[in-house]
Design a protein around this nucleic acid. Sequence first.
DNA 1: AGACAACGACAACTATGTTGTCTATCTTGG
DNA 2: CCAAGATAGACAACATAGTTGTCGTTGTCT
Lengths: 159, 159
Amino acid sequence: MSRSGPDLALLMLGGFRSLVDAATAELAARGYEDVRPLHDFALRAIAAGADSASELGRRMSVTKQAAARTVAVLEERGYVERNADPADARRMRLQISERGVTLLRTGEGIFNELRKQWEQQIGPAKLAELESILTELVGVQPVRVDTPGWLARDLGETI
Amino acid sequence: MSRSGPDLALLMLGGFRSLVDAATAELAARGYEDVRPLHDFALRAIAAGADSASELGRRMSVTKQAAARTVAVLEERGYVERNADPADARRMRLQISERGVTLLRTGEGIFNELRKQWEQQIGPAKLAELESILTELVGVQPVRVDTPGWLARDLGETI
DNA sequence: AGACAACGACAACTATGTTGTCTATCTTGG
DNA sequence: CCAAGATAGACAACATAGTTGTCGTTGTCT
């Protein structure tokens, strides 16, 4: 009780990490060893309509150069495809590959399983309350995921 | 309602970022422009008893080399002092400087203010509930802060 | 005394970000 | 209808984290 401000921040970081670490480890176990959380977020942004590197950069609040490099990695690993845009010769249209789609589905499934585990741990009412309070505080606007670094690391091994 | 697993993770990330971004910006405004969240965490670990680079590395779940570099930065910026340990010639004893102490105090105050803002926004009962639920889920064990990258970035400018 | 462990330093590498510059291409307004 | 400006993507240089591996010095323990 009477927790301090810093503790509150750390609690939320802990919750986030707890989920993301577990999800990353599980993804690795299912054969997606080359995926970092950052890649998942980028892929989601592409799925949500960021169909060019520059646009992806905007959505992730990152420079287009950084976005282009993330795209290059994703392409190299077979999660997205880049095709020339027939309507605009400057652009390379991004498309999620089949492998990318199954990755997204798998990731979503894993997160949902983790959420279910939490639900069993504390009960549906409390989980709903947690989500409701967080939503009230953080808002419903999309969270910025311009989150380089540890989000980008392979956390599975370090546990 | 019926939020998904990924959303839950993002909500907690959002909450954490919201606090940390605001705190970093406020610290910068108060004259601590060269401080990243990572530095604050490291300083707290040193204050909590990590009095050598290797020990700091252990506490932050990071290699001693990485810890030594963080220490070097903190020393360069005047937040910690390194003195030869009279009892062990291999070690450099870490001590938080006066400036470091005031930084820690200031940071703590800012986080507490932010927490108070949240309290006013949603009411003390809900905040207590939030903390209680998170504690139940995340546990009381210290959260690992081996969090390179965006935690280390100067988030104040990018808002 | 000798074997082993630990501290801190150095070097090389990875991953992600940034700014700045450049070319090619689109768009728009006089 | 063409010149000026905006935008897409690429390249290069650099910053800030992290990692592994190696090494010399110093403690510790049998």
